[in-house]
Amino acid sequence: MFEARLNAATTLKKVLDAIKDLLNEATFDCSDAGIQLQAMDNSHVSLVSLTLRSDGFDKFRCDRNLSMGMNLGSMSKILKCANNEDTVTMKAQDNADTVTFMFESQNHEKVSDYEMKLMNLDQEHLGIPETDYSCVVRMPAMEFARICRDLSQFGESVIICCTKEGVKFSASGDVGSANIKLAQTSSVDKEEEAVTIEMQEPVSLTFACRYLNAFTKATPLSNQVQLSMSADVPLVVEYRIPDLGHIRYYLAPKIEE
């Protein structure tokens, strides 16, 4: 028996919004530790790694490890039927071929349940090597989303250049070129507004705007985003989900031909 309850459906809606542009379907691996999802996009350029810890749920029970392959388009249709404030419960029997989503209104007067067929997905699990990153940048998630959106007007790629002084995002194309520099903040009233840079070695890497923009769909989950970079290895874009877990996106860099 698997059962996981969150007091507000909005969290699960935001999690799904953060992955459904990159993935059509994905396997949710459930254990007593929580829910894990790891999947590459169809073109094998990026990877989504989601962790939702069991202690972050309002109720969590998982008697046997369970892998639930879900069509994210179908899951999205179902979650649209929930109000943001509804309690959401996911339930499945051991070895079941369906999962049930139950939504309950705050006043307990409306209860709906939606049963969704599970899929058998060919899982390809990738081992992600431990890496000491040369640069780790933390910045407001909204600021990162804004930069990705603005720069994608100028080219298909963004060059991220990180030094001790700051981080520079650049794009160029037919229109011309654009550069956005962010300096490390000296003092901020609120921690979530800070830009911090931990640098061992300066790095300059090129990434596809398309994917960076897809990652920023996680912005509603977190005030801050963390970018971890080293030369010639995938970028890690991490959003922490308060009290529940995190979503990490890995993106392979582009190289000069």
Binding site: M40, H44, V45, S46, L47, E124, H125, L126, G127, I128, P129, S157, T206, A208, V233, P234, Y250, L251, A252, P253, K254, I255, E256, E257
Partner: peptide, 14 residues
Amino acid sequence: MSKQQSLKSFFNRT
């Protein structure tokens, strides 16, 4: 022009 690399060249299959 820059060429997009695949993630598979960085991560091992487990």
